[in-house]
């Protein structure tokens, strides 16, 4: 089996400061990788470099495209990269309002990606949007409501529906459960887990919440000061951390 994503030597500097330094890994189809670390550890910088939101200073992000096989998304043309981010890629923001159009109805939000790739049949777009609302547990009768009328958890679920409607193969998630109530988090995690399996999605999840990665991620990458300090199977890294920083991180989690 070939990797879906092959990342080699990604570095990003902010002047003299390190954003992230020399990060390399492979991600296989259906695999979920978590990136953990404290604020400022470079995990969001890395995610943004991978997703094409930031241009890395060095390195390659090779993605197994449907048509041409492995392509470096860092050096590919901007139209190609933007096309990729509308079709095979998805990005779930921490704050739903960064990932949603707040002045457009739920149906329009979900339908946008379909229309962006050429769907021109209103009835079919609406049917698909309604179907996706159902899959993220939003009632069909809310299809014409704007996200401003939704709760935080619903907005986040709407953002997920909007992202997954075109059947992407790789999803980037930046603190997907951040800022949500614990009970809402649980529901969201359950939903994400089901969708990941059902759609055989590959995902990269950035979070500082170790409970989130334990439930969602197959593998873990621990970052500190822009460097990857430890990688491995999620439960192994959490239960038998090797690096001092990881040990500190794991032992700092409050028990309930």
């Amino acid at each position: 089996m070939n990797p879906l994503l092959n990342v080699g030597g990604i570095s990003k500097f902010y002047g003299h400061r390190i954003g992230c330094k020399d990060v390399s890994f492979d991600l296989y189809p259906g695999e979920v990788m978590g990136i953990v670390g404290e604020s400022g550890s470079g995990k969001s910088t890395l995610l943004n470099c991978l997703a094409g939101h930031l241009a890395p200073d060095t390195g390659a992000v090779n993605f197994d495209t449907r048509v041409d096989g492995m392509r470096d998304t860092v050096t590919m043309s901007e139209p190609e990269r933007r096309m990729l981010s509308r079709t095979d890629w998805a990005f779930v923001h921490q704050h739903a309002r960064d990932g949603l159009r707040m002045n457009v109805s739920a149906g329009g939000n979900v339908g946008e990606r379909l229309m962006a790739v050429g769907a021109r049949h209103y009835g079919e777009i609406r049917d698909q949007a309604t179907d996706w609302l159902g899959r993220v547990e939003i009632n069909a009768d809310r299809v014409d409501d704007r996200p401003t009328a939704f709760s935080g958890g619903m907005q986040q679920r709407l953002q997920i529906a909007r992202n997954l409607v075109t059947g992407p193969r790789l999803v980037f998630m930046d603190e997907p459960t951040g800022g949500l109530d614990v009970s809402v988090q649980a529901r969201l995690l359950d939903l994400l887990r089901g969708l990941v399996r059902e759609m055989n999605l590959s995902a990269i999840i950035v979070t500082h919440d170790l409970a989130v990665v334990r439930l969602l991620a197959d593998r873990l990458m621990v970052m500190k000061d822009g460097h990857v300090v430890e990688t491995g199977l999620t439960d192994q890294v959490l239960d038998d951390p090797q690096h001092g920083y990881t040990q500190l991180l794991v032992s700092s989690v409050l028990q309930v």
Binding site: R82, R86, V104, G107, G108, E112, R113, M115, A116
Partner: peptide, 10 residues
């Protein structure tokens, strides 16, 4: 990238 125009019509 004109998908957004159709969002308005939608």
């Amino acid at each position: 990238e004109y998908g957004l125009m159709h969002v308005k019509l939608y």
